[in-house]
Amino acid sequence: MSSTVRPLSPHLQVYRWQIQMVTSILHRATGIVLALGSLLVAAALVALASGPEAWAKVVALATSWYGLIVLVGWTWCLAYHWLNGIRHLLQDAGLGYSIERFVANSWISVIGSLVLTAIVWFVIYAHGGLA
């Protein structure tokens, strides 16, 4: 018999990068980040229920410079997963599958998520920022 170490299926490294695979990979990556974010949501709610000292720590973390980086990144993950999630629901309904439209709505997810993130943080800073 021939060797059992034979190619099984094409893997990521044999493909040229294209927007369709970027949107798919990003959907999973942002999903993982958002799942981890649920831990932070739970921690913040438990802190709020525990008392003012615990809540003050949450506020201190959220208003620090690294807290700001986490919150902006988190906002983009939510914006991307939300927009691309709508795209996936429309695909479940059989819409947007022609190659041109598939590429076009992939770009809508990527660029739209950056626009949504910018809008959210523009509103936050227009109302005085995090402090």
Partner: peptide, 27 residues
């Protein structure tokens, strides 16, 4: 996913509304 289309927007608006408020108001 369909539920979260609405609930995640609500949650984001709720959290942004909490920015700058004191402990008692957040509770």
């Amino acid at each position: 996913a369909v539920a979260l289309l609405f609930l995640s927007v609500y949650f984001l608006v709720f959290v942004v509304g909490l920015i700058g408020v004191d402990y008692a108001s957040a509770r």
